[in-house]
Structures are given as C-alpha cells and as structure tokens.
Amino acid sequence: MDMSSTLAEIIETFQSVDADTRLDLLLDYANNLPALPEKYRDEAVRDLGRIHECMTPVFLFMEKDAGNLRIYAEVAQEAPTVRGFVSILVSAFDGQPCQDAATAPADLLKLLGLDGQIRMNRAVGLSAILGRVKKAAA
C-alpha cells in the first residue's frame, strides 16, 4: 500500500493487537493530543476551525510550512474516541510532507480496526475530519 511509513507503522500496531487493546491504544493517543497553540485559542478564531459534521466540538487547523503539513487540534475531553483519532492524524502527519496526508486512505478507521467498535454517527464525524485534513494537504 502506498502510504507514509509513520501511518503504516501506526496501522500495523493497531492491527497486531486484539480489540480491547486497540481501544487502550486509542485512549493513549487521546491522552497525548497536544494542546492548541496560543494563536488559535481565542474563541472567535477557534470557531473558524470547527468541524460541523462532528456532534462534539472539534477544532482543526492546518498550515503548510515549506511543503510540510502542520496540524493543530482541540477536541473535548468528553469525546476520547474523537480525540484519539485526531491525535493519530497529528502523530502521522504533523511536520511531515503534505503528500503523506493528501494520499492517506479514506478508510483509515477500518484499517485501524476500529470500524466495528465506533458507532456510525461518530464514524461520519471522523471521516469528515480526515477529509478536511486531506483537502488541506492536497
């Protein structure tokens, strides 16, 4: 499969463990999502990055820096699943060539083995987040 090595490694890790451990991994990612940088924290500015397809507040900002992608995000603590997924995207694509995010597989949730445990409404939001990242990186 043609994808960045960082993302391939994350997928491989998720695929190598059982379903419960996969959720633990996702929770680790959720706990390690970096805070939004100061310049995006002002409420009016922050709201520009809101992903409206998500039922819980998700704010996402992408910048291009000399061909590399920077991703910054804020996700409510009450939504650890979304936080975890966003944190995976940040780990895989932040500071990496834009190409990596642009070519990310659209069925990432499935490749991570999480599609069975995450309800559909949530999956829609996650797919919208990935779509936004891919578009910004393209």
Binding site: L23, Q77, E78, A79, T81, Q117, R119, R122
Partner: peptide
C-alpha cells in the same frame, strides 16, 4: 455512553461499563 472510551477516562468508582454496540 455513546463514546466507547469515555468510561476508561474515569467513572463512578463502583460502576461497570455496558456498551450498546459491543
């Protein structure tokens, strides 16, 4: 919960989790 991970972030100490999908 709706969020399958929420219980693991902390819950009423005596509470068990029942997930609607799983």
């Amino acid at each position: 919960d709706e969020d399958v991970l929420l219980y693991s972030t902390g819950h009423i100490p005596e509470a068990v989790k029942i997930d609607w999908i799983n």
